[in-house]
């Protein structure tokens, strides 16, 4: 089932990249995001799936508002043959290397099976998370207690991006 959804994702991604119409590209990207959210549900990650759907909606609205009403929604540029060949070659090499890497990963679906709580923090979290943090949702416990420093960083990235966006789109320009 996950495989099928992933293939759907890949097809949608290729459509999003190759489509001539920007609006349909963005819509297909939404397809990628929403099928990812379903895959995440299959992977027993309701928190992540929830946030993924919400974020996908925000991204679609932002992207559509950014591109619509500009006069071009059609991509007119001709495809460059050499660019495409170069891109293909680069991606093939990269993919080959990555595939070599993933073959040596532990098999899919075997995480935490033989782990001990002393050496693997994830195991420690699910064993002691409720007692130590009082949070029944272990993911929240990890995010806001064990690794709250990461979350501070994450909130800061969002703050940075917003201040940056305001600065880039601010009213008066430089005096030059």
């Amino acid at each position: 089932m996950i495989e099928l959804l992933l293939i759907l994702c890949i097809v949608a991604a290729i459509i999003a990249i190759e489509s001539k119409n920007l609006l349909s590209s963005i819509i297909s990207l939404g397809g990628v995001g929403f099928s990812l959210a379903i895959i995440m549900l299959f992977l027993s990650a309701p928190d992540v799936a929830f946030v993924q759907i919400l974020v996908e909606v925000v991204m679609l609205i932002i992207l559509i508002r950014a591109t619509i009403n500009r006069d071009v929604t059609e991509v007119k540029c001709k495809r460059e043959f050499f660019g495409m060949i170069f891109g293909m070659a680069l991606v093939t090499v990269l993919l080959g290397i990555l595939l070599m890497g993933i073959q040596t990963l532990p098999e899919f679906g075997t995480a935490l099976v033989n782990a001990s709580a002393e050496s693997v923090p994830a195991k420690y979290y699910i064993e002691n998370g409720l007692a130590q943090t009082g949070s029944a949702n272990i993911v929240t416990g990890v995010l806001l207690d064990y690794r709250a420093y990461d979350t501070l960083g994450e909130a800061t990235v969002l703050f940075t991006a917003i201040i940056g966006a305001i600065a880039i789109l601010r009213k008066k320009k430089t005096n030059e």
């Binding site: 940075t160 991006a161 940056g164 320009k173």
Partner: peptide, 16 residues
């Protein structure tokens, strides 16, 4: 990522 995102915005600060 914080340092990078801030530096993207700062490079484009003049908006020209």
């Amino acid at each position: 990522e914080i340092a990078s995102v801030a530096s993207y915005a700062l490079v484009g600060f003049g908006t020209m």
